[in-house]
Computed example of a mutant assay.
Amino acid sequence: MKVLNLQCQHGHGFEGWFSSEDDFQHQLSTGFLACPMCGDAQVAKLPSAPRLNLGASQPGHESRAHAPDSPGVAAGPTGQCAVPADNAASLVPQAVQAAWLHVVRRVMASTEDVGQRFAEEARKMHYGECEARGIRGHATPQQTEELLDEGIAVMPLPVPDGFKDTLQ
């Protein structure tokens, strides 16, 4: 099994697992391989060092990445993404991507997909015709503007393709 560090032309980094180099090349050439963040099929292999497992670490020597005072993104006690304001500007792209994926996962888990009925359902909730709940779906730019004009708070949320379907 080959584990490769990959990156799309937009700078999104991700990992790919392949049975061989030929499998990677085949998936790349047929367009089957795409960025899970944006769907871009122009993917490049990044240089990486092999991982050598030479034994367990010695007790008391935790990795810096897992130390409680290490910079980056952490989940707070309620599960929100906790990034100190003074640290937000210094986040590396991988930390920003991880934070974004965390937010998308939470939204997907806590909302109902109403699809093309989004504008209709949002209006029903706003005017008290049905119980308020978290929803997500599709609205045209015109529908979005109309909802905002009516005082209905909506926000576009681009969802990576990998979150739209159940993974096997």
Rank of each mutant, 00 (worst) to 15 (best):
M1G: 13
M1F: 01
K2V: 05
K2W: 12
V3P: 01
L4Y: 15
N5R: 14
L6S: 08
C8N: 03
C8E: 00
H12V: 05
F14E: 07
E15R: 07
G16S: 04
S19E: 05
S20G: 03
D23S: 06
F24V: 01
Q25I: 02
Q27C: 09
S29E: 09
T30N: 03
L33S: 08
A34K: 11
A34Y: 14
C35G: 11
P36L: 06
M37Q: 06
C38Y: 08
G39N: 08
D40L: 00
A41Y: 05
A41R: 15
K45T: 04
L46R: 15
P47F: 03
P47M: 06
S48I: 13
A49R: 07
N53S: 09
N53R: 10
N53D: 15
S57T: 10
P59C: 03
G60R: 02
S63P: 08
A65S: 05
H66R: 09
A67P: 00
V73R: 04
G76K: 02
C81D: 00
A82N: 02
A82C: 03
D86C: 04
S90L: 10
L91R: 08
L91M: 11
P93M: 13
Q94H: 13
Q94A: 15
A98K: 05
R105K: 11
R105S: 14
R105H: 08
R106W: 02
M108Q: 15
A109V: 04
T111Q: 05
D113F: 12
G115I: 09
F118N: 01
A119W: 13
E121W: 04
A122D: 00
R123W: 00
R123N: 01
R123L: 03
G128E: 01
E131N: 06
E131L: 14
A132G: 13
R133Y: 08
R136D: 10
H138E: 06
A139Q: 04
Q143E: 15
E145G: 09
E146T: 13
D149F: 08
E150I: 12
V154Q: 11
P156E: 15
P156M: 11
P158W: 12
P160Q: 01
D161S: 10
K164C: 12
T166E: 14
T166D: 10
L167M: 12
